[in-house]
Design a protein around this nucleic acid. Structure first.
Length: 263
DNA sequence: ATGACATAGGTGCTATGA
């Protein structure tokens, strides 16, 4: 089973690239972030024609998330139960293997974490509150669904290895101790960063600034992650970032992250 | 210190992203 996550920075602009990527990368589940469109504009038919089901949670202008899957998503929930939020950031569902039994179902949480803008700002406080709300809910969700994947745009780096310029970015947004504390608190729930289960090229990033030839100079950060629960960790057979679409014309600033599960 | 680039909304420019 293959799963992936991709912040597309407007599905309206990026839909042809997403369809091309799915044709080249036949995943079972793809989580999308930053759709930047409302549900009535979501291109269900285009995904259906490509052989995929889709569920979405959009809003005007900003945010918006979706799950694209080979088999229909079941038990779909939107945003974080127990945490009031006006912004469309989380969509979760149970998905089955193509020919699996219920015991092989996987709970997938696709999330677009808040950016936070600047440490100390209102948006930063919202980010921290959101992270605490996510953690409180995930604790119960993991108890109900031991086979769980949390993937998306976390907008947080784990450590200096995830940052092209650790000194310049020190205590800056995505790199503060407060954000990293919350990310590690998610890990402490029993989740594992799939990317770090494998040897990776140094300076492996998932996002590069559009400005100043950020991608060409590999001035990026690893802020898109796939976390797996303890029950799934032994099944993870691969995880990597696919930089290919970042070479496209009019690319998203984020690259997809892919993971493969055995069985 | 600021802007660089991209997107949506709306039609000149602001808000937001990371």
């Amino acid at each position: 089973m293959k799963l992936a996550t991709w912040n597309v920075n407007s599905l309206t602009v990026r839909l042809p690239q997403v369809l091309d990527w799915l044709a080249a990368n036949p995943v079972d589940v793809l989580a999308l972030q930053e759709l930047k469109l409302t549900d009535d504009k979501f291109p269900h038919a285009a995904f259906k024609a490509a052989g995929f089901e889709s569920v979405c949670f959009g809003q005007k202008t900003y945010n918006g998330v979706a799950l694209i899957s080979r088999t229909p998503a079941q038990q779909v929930t939107r945003n974080i139960p127990g945490f009031d939020d006006d912004l469309a950031r989380v969509i979760s569902a149970t998905v089955a293997f193509e020919s699996g039994s219920a015991a092989s179902d996987i709970r997938v949480v696709g999330a677009y974490f808040p950016n936070g803008q600047e440490p100390g700002s209102d948006k930063f406080e919202y980010k921290l509150a959101w992270l605490q709300g996510l953690r409180a809910w995930l604790r119960t969700e993991l108890a109900t669904h031991p086979r769980l994947v949390l993937m998306g745009d976390f907008n947080i780096t784990f450590d200096d290895a995830d940052v092209w310029d650790p000194e310049g970015m020190r205590d800056q947004i995505h790199c503060t101790d407060e954000e990293r504390y919350e990310l590690n608190a998610l890990i402490a729930l029993g989740l594992t960063d799939a990317h770090r289960l494998f040897a990776q090229a140094p300076k492996s990033y998932s996002w590069w600034d559009y400005r100043d030839f950020g991608f060409k100079r590999n001035r990026g950060m690893r802020i898109d992650h796939i976390l797996v629960s303890q029950a799934l960790k032994p099944l993870v057979s691969a995880c990597q970032i696919d930089k290919t679409p970042r070479h496209n014309e009019r690319p998203s600033d984020h690259a997809p992250v892919l993971m493969e599960l055995k069985g």
